[in-house]
Nucleic acid binder design. Structure first.
Lengths: 159, 159
DNA sequence: TTATTAGCCGAATAAATTACCGTAAAAAAA
DNA sequence: TTTTTTTACGGTAATTTATTCGGCTAATAA
């Protein structure tokens, strides 16, 4: 037997996830203090949480405004035919657009909700032109974001 | 003179941002190799990028499905009166809801676009009930996410 | 009870972080 | 052009951290 049992996460595991989600670059020794463990079992738990897939990756949150991507918009996209082929082509191409921060297929009125980031209205027009030309796109509607009320709040750990 | 000049980011700075955005927990020494610097000037640059606000924070991306928040939806929210007071109250309360992953004020048809995560439809109903009761809410429309085509792609660094 | 397992601590060592200094190249001033 | 100043680099060394390993303890199962 190689696989380990699907152990339930205890309070310490959850605290580790909560801390790492908010401070991905904390040192293991500091993390250990936070959860009242010594360094070795703490590191063991972090490794386990990574290997079991609870932690998918680590990243840095950058200031988009300082990097010329200070504006955000959501574009509702409707495709003209809902065949698997059309969907696949659209997906493949939209993923390749760097300014597309997110793209979700949705139920409830249109097909895709695309979140984009860009510098100014000129960049927006160019980007919209690109998206309108994607395979199968029949109509779009844009909502420009005027204020970020809440952003990258992670997964709720302690309710 | 205490403040430093607003230096333009060079290729090395941009590479550092690009790498950290995708791998927030990389060690400084490995990062230094990637950008062909020794450890000390590399660390200096990272610290500078943090202090100048290019890097806002670091985080871990968790697997929401394994943590009982596998479903996502976007809720369009319209408020009944558009006074500053109503907006402020709504903002203050929506921020406090843990399952609200994002909330954006938007122009183009309704007032707020709220992204929520939840476990199942029972949890969704409870959450929608909470949101409908928030100060000033007059109507909502929900789009359930059926597929994540693209997620947490960061800010484009190299176009 | 006894064996087994899981999970912890602490020590030892390897590695990384971080501050400091000397140097060289580039920029600014003379 | 020459000198001065600034900037950014690399190397070194002290400190801190990561990581491995052995052994202890408590809970569980036989």
């Amino acid at each position: 037997m190689t696989s380990s049992k699907p152990k339930v996460l205890d309070r310490i595991d959850l605290t580790i996830l909560d801390v790492l989600q908010k401070n991905g670059r904390i040192s293991n020794s500091t993390l250990a203090q936070r959860v009242n463990l010594s360094a070795s079992p703490c590191l063991e738990r972090v490794k386990r949480l990574e290997h079991e897939g609870y932690i998918e990756s680590y990243g840095a949150f950058l200031n988009a405004s300082k990097l010329k991507y200070g504006m955000t918009a959501f574009i509702q996209v409707t495709l003209d035919r809902t065949t698997a082929d059309i969907f696949n082509k659209f997906r493949a191409e939209v993923i390749g657009i760097k300014q597309v921060a997110e793209c979700h297929m949705v139920a409830g009125g249109f097909d895709y909700l695309v979140k984009i980031c860009f510098e100014d209205m000129a960049a927006y027009r160019a980007l919209l032109g690109t998206i309108v030309e994607l395979p199968g796109v029949s109509q779009t509607h844009t909502y420009i974001v005027t204020e970020h009320v809440k952003r990258h709040s992670g997964v709720p750990i302690f309710d």
